[in-house]
Design a protein around this nucleic acid. Structure first.
Lengths: 241, 241
DNA sequence: TGCACTTCTGGTCACAGCGACACTAAGATG
DNA sequence: CATCTTAGTGTCGCTGTGACCAGAAGTGCA
């Protein structure tokens, strides 16, 4: 294996012969749901930023940046997310650490997070260099970011089956049809409305309200996520947004 | 939050005023099964090394070391494991990246792996500074390593339910009773032999041989792990030992 | 107003998976 | 040879789930 190991200048006033150490970056795969015109279902979308500098300049890449020396990993991910979308995530979890020697010309270990944000809270970025892409229709990304997104998608589709993360894509109050549509969009298949209702009502994760959503046909009851259950979900680490 | 940020000398000939960057370490939680004398079930055990140098000197800690600049993360974990046990792991997977600012006096991001090795392949280390501990009865470890082990144990007990990792703790050929004992040790509860057989035979993960294990009472058929199935198990990343 | 249509909501039915448990097979032990 | 222990088979009842039916309650159009 050939390794291009171009020395990168360090920010401090070191002499020029300093060998570059391993640097730590933090990137985030930010998912939301987006309903494209004419599409039957909503689709999973994520923001990418166009690289302005040397490695892979001009290509699209995951939002991220260097880890600050006095910044926790989670905080760095939140910062990344805020700088891209201007929002706090409704869900944030560490995904994986990518550190293959040849994934970048200089040695970079990327701690990658994945996050969910609610479509209704989406600030429309007027930034030319930030664009939202369909997760299933991505261009060639910089570095190993295509592989990273594929893994994040796998985790999303996997975790939606046994976790309550779907609520991270909905507003405070929602109908069962809206919740079902989140699942259908992520899993890319239709779910039976009656069976879906039975399953989700079997758990204690939903609190029915006495309000209804009118407008289309028969009014649908609005539900609310049971906050008490949410915390037991994660493992002993308890990653908090 | 107070941060002790003692400068650590860099290996190269830099001037003394170089601020220390974030350093990357790799540690591994290595599990095996051990049957203590008088114990009914085998128990999960892991090796710890006594720290020889400054932070937390004398305390027990997970085996690990600095990430070499031309070394993949997986390779660093394998090296760690070899240096401790002298063996190649039968299972190796990345666990989590720990990077809280205050987890060490200097800024260290630890990429933690967890691994399984077969009890029968255990080389008994005569090293005074390496000792195997019961996972459920650990002393106070250095840094945040108690928390790390707790998380690794959670993952082990979780993953054994939906994955085939139990085979990582067995020899090539084994009886169903031996396989069941692995599950019982990890999950810390008895399993019904008949139901266990039905479940595990329902999958295509086991290949029956025509050999039997004699010695105790009625001879038990020896099984062999179906290698073809193993690969489909992991996600799109496919972490290989 | 009345009828068709859509969505919400509750219910039934058949089937698969699983825990509990009874029972047979076969070698070890004395 | 009788008894004990472990290996392996079969059965029963419960539960969760997919497929599907049917009534409830609105909208929209003739």
């Amino acid at each position: 294996m050939t390794i291009t190991n171009a020395p990168a200048p360090r920010a401090s006033g070191a002499t020029s012969s300093v060998a570059p150490g391993t640097r730590v970056a933090v990137s985030t795969v930010i998912f939301t749901l987006r309903r494209s015109a004419g599409q039957e279902r909503a689709s999973v979308a994520l923001p990418l930023v166009r690289r302005q500098s040397d490695p892979h300049e001009g290509q699209w890449a995951l939002p991220g940046g260097w880890l600050d020396i006095v910044e926790d990993l989670d905080a760095a991910a939140s910062r990344t997310l805020a700088e891209t979308t201007g929002l706090a995530p409704s869900y944030l979890e560490q995904l994986y650490a990518f550190g293959a020697v040849d994934r970048s010309p200089t040695r970079v270990v990327s701690i990658v997070y994945w996050a969910l944000i609610r479509p209704d809270e989406m600030a429309d970025t007027s930034d030319e260099n930030v664009r939202w892409f369909d997760a299933d229709d991505l261009p060639n990304l910089a570095f190993d970011h295509n592989q990273i997104v594929a893994y994040a998608l796998w985790r999303l589709r996997n975790k939606v089956g046994y976790s309550q993360i779907a609520h991270g894509l909905l507003a405070d109050e929602f109908t069962l049809a809206e919740l079902r549509e989140v699942y259908e969009s992520i899993l890319r298949r239709k779910l039976d409305p009656a069976n879906f209702r039975r399953q989700v009502e079997g758990t204690d994760t939903l609190l029915p309200t006495d309000r209804f959503r009118k407008g289309s046909h028969r009014p649908a009851r609005l539900y609310r996520f049971n906050q008490d259950v949410e915390l037991a979900d994660r493992g002993p680490l308890g990653v908090r947004p």
